[in-house]
């Protein structure tokens, strides 16, 4: 007898979860955190040409406590790695990481046998949600990364898929 009530509650929770996921996906506040070349493209993505604010993601918070997503834009070297880890730990759940650029994905062009300084990919330090390759990626790619994160959160894509020209 009681089962219908239970299911309805579950359904409602699912709806609430969807709503929350949608809210979070549309309010990704990044941490002000540029490392190298890619940071300039990150700034450009906030610029008037591309305007990342359309997705509610222009609120760059300098304090990790208020940020939701860490865009690792640039090379992380071994001196910097503990600091990045601390920053990640200082962020509050739920939190996401976007590895922007080849350096953040795998160390990029700075990896060679016998290298002594570069961390070969930010996923060696903490889990990464979205990878954006390029050296540096275009701002569109960063927007695409935000959309990919949204897709990961909500399970669907609300925007048209852009095919690159041949």
């Amino acid at each position: 007898m009681e089962t219908p009530v239970d299911t309805s509650q579950i359904v409602q929770f699912a709806a609430l979860d969807d709503l929350l996921a949608l809210s979070r996906a549309n309010s990704l506040w990044p941490l002000t955190f540029g490392l190298a070349c890619c940071a300039i493209e990150m700034m450009a993505a906030g610029g008037p040409r591309f305007d990342i604010s359309r997705f509610g993601a222009e609120v760059f918070r300098p304090s990790p406590r208020q940020a939701d997503v860490m865009i690792v834009a640039g090379t992380i070297n071994k001196k910097m790695a503990p600091a990045v880890k601390t920053l990640y730990d200082q962020m509050l759940e739920p939190k996401w990481v976007i590895a922007m650029g080849n350096c953040a994905i795998s160390g990029g062009p700075f990896v060679f046998p016998g290298q002594y300084a570069v961390v070969e990919g930010v996923d060696k330090l903490f889990p990464v949600d979205v990878y954006i390759p390029g050296c540096p990626p275009r701002p569109e790619a960063l927007i695409e990364g935000i959309l990919a994160l949204e897709q990961k959160l909500t399970g669907k894509r609300r925007w048209p898929v852009v095919k690159p020209p041949q």
């Binding site: 979070r24 309010s27 509610g56 939701d68």
Partner: peptide, 10 residues
């Protein structure tokens, strides 16, 4: 969206 997100933060 912002308020919902802020409310649901840890």
């Amino acid at each position: 969206a912002d308020v919902a997100k802020l409310l649901s933060k840890q």
